[in-house]
């Protein structure tokens, strides 16, 4: 099973990436959305460097979470409108590969947009991020993985309901409370005047990812039933 799952996942991941890179619709709209939130946020508080250190982490993660809840919409919807989900299911031996590929693709897309927007944030709010870039990358990766694992599962659910565009954020955002709290705390520590890594938060994010990956592995195949 192990090797088959891995190769299936890689092939499917390639398909997800190719589909996106052909149009780049998802990445473009998500980047613009995050930029928009960043600009609008500056009107809600005094955007000086010291204030930005206090609110910046929360701003970033709220923008990421809202962007993700929009970005994850087409994840399964696309398969549904083109009626390709049953073909995918027939093509792979383990349906978990479909979920794994989708969540890997979503993590990569989310991470890419976050890394694109990080320098913009640094410039707009005068917060130096490059000295702690490595640590930020780790938090962004763990946070985005958590968002994508839960988000992929819930997008498979919401795609089959009415009002799906509104439903996904309503299902997803409360579920992601732990990710928001932990990643904001760790990021705030990294944006501090004397940056520090809150390993407790990093560990917590890893635990969240692991718990939801396990849940997805256990119950994932039921998500794809037709």
């Amino acid at each position: 099973m192990g090797l088959g799952l891995l190769s299936n996942t890689l092939v499917l991941l390639g398909k997800e990436l190719r589909t996106e890179l052909r149009s780049r619709e998802l990445l473009t709209t998500t980047v613009i959305f995050i930029l928009l939130v960043m600009v609008l946020f500056s009107f809600t508080f005094d955007p000086s460097s010291s204030e930005a250190r206090r609110f910046g982490a929360g701003l970033l993660w709220l923008a990421f979470l809202f962007a993700a809840s929009l970005m994850l919409q087409p994840c399964f919807l696309r398969e549904q409108t083109n009626d390709t989900l049953s073909a995918l299911r027939l093509a792979v031996s383990d349906p978990f590969a479909i979920l794994l590929a989708k969540l890997a693709a979503n993590t990569l897309f989310l991470l890419a947009t976050e890394l694109l927007m990080l320098p913009v944030f640094a410039v707009l709010y005068n917060v130096p991020v490059f000295p702690v870039f490595g640590q930020l990358l780790l938090v962004f990766f763990l946070g985005s993985l958590g968002v994508s694992v839960a988000g992929t599962a819930l997008s498979a659910i919401s795609a089959q309901a009415r009002m799906r565009e509104l439903l996904l954020p309503l299902l997803l955002l409360p579920l992601l409370t732990p990710v928001l709290v932990a990643s904001t705390q760790v990021t705030a520590g990294l944006l501090d005047v004397q940056p520090f890594v809150q390993w407790k938060g990093v560990g917590f994010l890893a635990v969240f990812d692991l718990v939801f990956l396990t849940a997805l592995w256990l119950f994932g195949e039921y998500l794809l039933e037709e």
């Binding site: 839960a150 089959q160 409370t177 732990p178 709290v181 969240f208 939801f212 039921y222 998500l223």
Partner: peptide, 29 residues
């Protein structure tokens, strides 16, 4: 049947989330 299955799956994810929500808020907030 679809409603039953999908809501059951969401219910499972939601319940697993509860200790994580509590833990995260208790530690940091």
């Amino acid at each position: 049947e679809r409603r039953a299955l999908l809501s059951a799956l969401f219910g499972i994810f939601a319940f697993i989330d509860v200790p994580l929500v509590f833990g995260s808020i208790r530690w940091w907030r």
